[in-house]
Write a protein that binds this DNA or RNA. Sequence first.
DNA 1: CCTCGGTGATTTTTT
DNA 2: ATCACCGAGG
Length: 743
Amino acid sequence: MDLDRDLNPQQREAVLHEGSPLLVLAGAGSGKTRALTYRIAHLVLHRGIAPWNILALTFTNKAAEEMRLRVQRLLGMEKPGIWIGTFHAICARILRRHIDRLGYRTNFVIYDASDQSRVVKSCLKRLGEEGKRIRPAAVQSLIEKAKNQAVDPALLVPQNAPMSRALGEVVADYRRHMEEANALDFGDLIFLVLRLFDAFPDIRATYQTRFHSILVDEYQDTNRAQHLLLRKVSSRNAELCVVGDDDQSIYRWRGAEVNNLLDFEKDFPGTRILTLEENYRSTQTILRAADAVARGNPERMEKRLWTLNETGEPVVYMEAPTSDGEAAFVVREIQRLVTEHQVPYRHIGVFFRTNAQSRPFEENCVFSRIPYAVIGSVRYYERAEVKDLLAYLRFLYNPSDTVSLLRIINQPPRGIGPATQAALQAYADRRGECLGKAIEHALENEVPSGASRGKIERFQGLIRKLRRQLEDAVPPEKLLKSVIELTGYRDYLQGKEDGERRLENVDEFVQTAAQFQGMEGDLGGRELLGAFLQRIALVSDIDQYEEKANCVSLMTLHCAKGLEFPIVFLTGMEDGVLPHQRSYTSPEALAEERRLCYVGITRAKKKLFLSRACRRSLYGESRQTAPSPFLASIPPDLIDFDNGSVERDALNSPEPAGYEVGEGDSALDYGESQLDRPPLPPPPAADRGRRFRIGDRITHETLGIGTVRKVEGTGYKEKITVQFAAGKIRKLMARISPVRKVS
DNA sequence: CCTCGGTGATTTTTT
DNA sequence: ATCACCGAGG
């Protein structure tokens, strides 16, 4: 580590500064991670601060992981013992130690949004008719919002609204449920630590004395609760260093308050402010485009990003007739880059505003045999089969976890249907116990009668057996295997749709468990399982991103933050998409969309493509679009309008040129996506959601021409059985196989 | 218990 | 367009 050689003067100062709080305003690509990691290394190596006296907070596990790795490398130590992690993970760690003081047990589980939704729904159900009129999502968002602001949700229930009484009851009931289940939601992790620190000064003092030096990354993304946490955990003589960029604040909707960054100086008097303005990532052209977009927002901290990098190529702007055409263009361009310029796939990122936009890109990639990975859309841990197994583990770990119990009690089916479940639940309610407890001795008493008795007994036996394994310190992987074996889960999946793929997911899950325990080998069975479950609850999509895999990355702009790619396609540059339609409700929301656009542009190192579809179907209907207003912010001389095929002033005209689908004089004719079929008469009702019908002639990229013999499933799950010319019969997934109809 | 069809809601982004 | 949820029928 050579500070003079590796860092510029501002970075160096960020590393060396001591004696007062430090705020580093770090523009995109200005090497803030470098500054942070060097600072940590410097603290340890040259200032004699013990690693365990350092706390570094990030927003994603990936950022934490990267920081840990880089610090380790700088220090040349294997496990320095620095507390590096996300806010949520660090809080979970603190709670794991002290949560008993708040009346919870230490084997709490963390509920994700869908678990939370189940709890809310069951609370609403209990309310009867009134409950039906309240949207679960509304309750969830109220609870989340409150906790983000460090306010008791009960206090945030509107007082005079028509449903306020019912709403209040749900909120209270939710809390009861969660406490009974010994479960925490995301918001609780932060919120409860605050409560813990407030109620028990001794605990707070422990951490205050522990953390001499605290560093926070992406400070513009902190919400009020996190900000308070920072204040409470930092003592008077703690050394605070926060890094952020107001231009990259894109989580306002989730409660983030940029003002935490902007007002940092007020909260921590004597703060030294540094600005990192040299960009090491992008070409001058890209940087100028980004800067122009950012300047469209009136309220921001003035920054002048500059770079010594080359001018680079112009930004390419492209208009396609439809969203499929847009995807076809992108894919075509990718192929060109790969074949003509030897660009590896992994150097390419394709970004979009919403997850729903990914489909055409996926389809076109599949068709063109381009390896790709969608980061984030279908989350691994939310797939049914993985969640099932996870629910077993969770219920074994925490017998009060009712949500998990209800998920597995009849999965795979073992004859314990809704009626039996209701009887058990009623019994549990009568005794004022949680379902799991009640089931344990339900049989000794009157409930339930008849046929279900044996079934419950068998389930009980299963759980007992598994719990015993857990007591015997059987590690997660083995436990998981036992669950699969004892429940016959494998056979159960085999018979189902998509069985193969889902089995793969199951195997992957087992491997994840094995991998995890390999890393954390020094814990016992119970603690190990707890750590494993916690890890899973707190991983995010972006954490799954692997730069090693050589494939094109498809992701939302939110996911893209913190990453960089030599080549970036920023797609869907349309009014209503970016900025999103719903952001027009407030100027603040609109400003955030602009920052989102800025984030997207600044991910690009060498070359940036912007694209738009003149027609896009949304909610099932196709609509004409206008170019994103953000495009007009970019100086035209930076843009290559694709050889004049797009009118230069197209971006300034209020109306989009009147393109017809698939044609139009000034639109580029990339044609329809290869997956599109020629227009057909509307299919009969039975074929709704299907591309194919029995008897259709199709052509497959490698298998040749064939006839559709059977069609199963609809939409994404549509499967066709095709008899090919050579006599081969194949079953294919319609949506992802390279097939197309022959007219 | 499972499957099917109909219905209604839902879609921004996620630790 | 797609998904979750519900009720009916096998």
